[in-house]
Simulated assay, not measured.
Amino acid sequence: MFRNNYDNDSVTFSPQGRIFQVEYAAEAVKQGSVVVGITSKTHVVLVAVKRNAEELSSYQKKLFPIDEHVGIAIAGLTSDARVLSNFMKQQSLGHRLTYGRSMPVRSLVEMIGSKAQTNTQHYGKRPYGVGLLVAGVDESGPHLFEFQPSGMTEEMVAFAIGARSQMARTYLEKNLDKFASCGREELIAHGLKALKESLVQDKELTVENTSVAVAGAKSKDGGAKAEPFKVYDGQEVNAWIESVADEKEAAAGGESGEGMDVDA
């Protein structure tokens, strides 16, 4: 009723125990374009739909490398994402210079969680209006973490954030049992299919609006080498998009042919 009395800063609770500025930041994440992350036993994949503000503008980047073994996908305010990504790069570089090895993904995620949660404790600060999917590989294998503006972080097998992400999550839930055994190409295909579920009817995945990022872990038997985190844009993603489109057309053709009599 008197919301304006309780949303002027992030340290004032409403009578219902809510912090409205944290909820506003979470709403900013829901307004961002959708990003999807999936892990298997060997790889972690991020896929994202990029937006452009108008026809004459370029598409906004959604995937950013942090270190050679980890990167992020963003949904929400890009300016806030830039602050967090710079912080993560500094921490990763400092850890590498100090210890001579890459930083564990969980430790990095816990650091940005603590940094974001601090903004909900001190007067004059505000929550970061961005959600992240942090994907990377370390000695324990591939990992995918979700970061929320409240500072909460969780490890996920597969997840999606952003506008209309519930439809992508529904696809991920239906196919959850398949992901663990998927190879690199299969995992990317599942990510793109989940992304397509979240698109509005008149929109399609194209080389201009789609980004893919992949990182792979070193196999225990030494058969496969570790694959550094790499972002693919433009024509690099064309083959993946076409393969998903071909599968959809083949499935549609199979359904239309059911029940039809064909003369020999």
Rank of each mutant, 00 (worst) to 15 (best):
F2D: 14
R3D: 15
N5S: 14
N5M: 12
Y6H: 03
N8H: 14
V11K: 03
F13N: 01
S14V: 06
I19F: 12
Q21N: 07
Y24L: 03
A25I: 00
A25R: 10
A25P: 10
A28H: 05
A28K: 09
A28S: 14
V29F: 09
K30H: 12
S33D: 10
S33P: 14
V34K: 06
V35A: 14
V36K: 09
K41M: 10
V45K: 04
L46D: 04
A48W: 02
K50I: 06
R51A: 03
N52Q: 15
A53V: 06
E54C: 05
E55C: 00
L56C: 00
S57C: 09
S58F: 07
S58R: 13
Y59T: 02
K61F: 02
K62Q: 14
K62G: 00
P65W: 12
D67Y: 09
G76W: 12
R82L: 12
R82E: 13
V83G: 01
V83C: 05
S85W: 03
N86R: 12
K89M: 12
G94T: 02
R96A: 10
L97C: 04
R101N: 11
S102K: 13
M103Q: 08
M103G: 00
M103I: 15
M103P: 01
P104F: 12
V109D: 06
E110T: 10
M111R: 15
I112E: 04
S114L: 04
A116V: 01
A116D: 09
Q117Y: 10
T118S: 11
N119C: 15
T120S: 08
K125R: 13
P127Q: 12
A135Q: 04
V137C: 13
D138C: 02
E139A: 10
H143W: 13
L144K: 11
F145W: 15
E146R: 15
E146I: 08
F147S: 06
F147I: 02
Q148Y: 06
P149F: 00
P149K: 11
M152S: 09
M152L: 10
T153S: 10
T153Q: 09
E154L: 09
E154G: 07
M156P: 03
M156S: 13
A158C: 03
A160L: 05
A160F: 06
I161P: 01
I161K: 12
G162T: 01
R164W: 07
M167G: 02
R169S: 14
T170K: 04
T170R: 08
L172T: 07
E173V: 07
K174D: 05
D177G: 06
F179M: 02
C182K: 04
C182G: 00
R184G: 01
E185N: 11
L187Q: 11
G191S: 11
K193W: 07
E197V: 02
L199D: 07
D202L: 08
K203G: 00
K203W: 03
K203Y: 08
T206V: 05
V207Y: 03
E208D: 13
N209F: 07
V212W: 04
K218N: 04
K218E: 15
K218L: 08
D221C: 05
G223F: 03
G223D: 14
G223S: 13
F229G: 01
K230F: 09
V231R: 05
Y232W: 02
Y232G: 00
E236H: 11
E236Y: 09
V237I: 06
V237C: 06
I241Q: 02
I241K: 11
E242L: 12
D246M: 13
K248Q: 15
A250I: 12
A250W: 02
A250K: 15
A252F: 00
G254N: 15
E255C: 01
D263S: 10
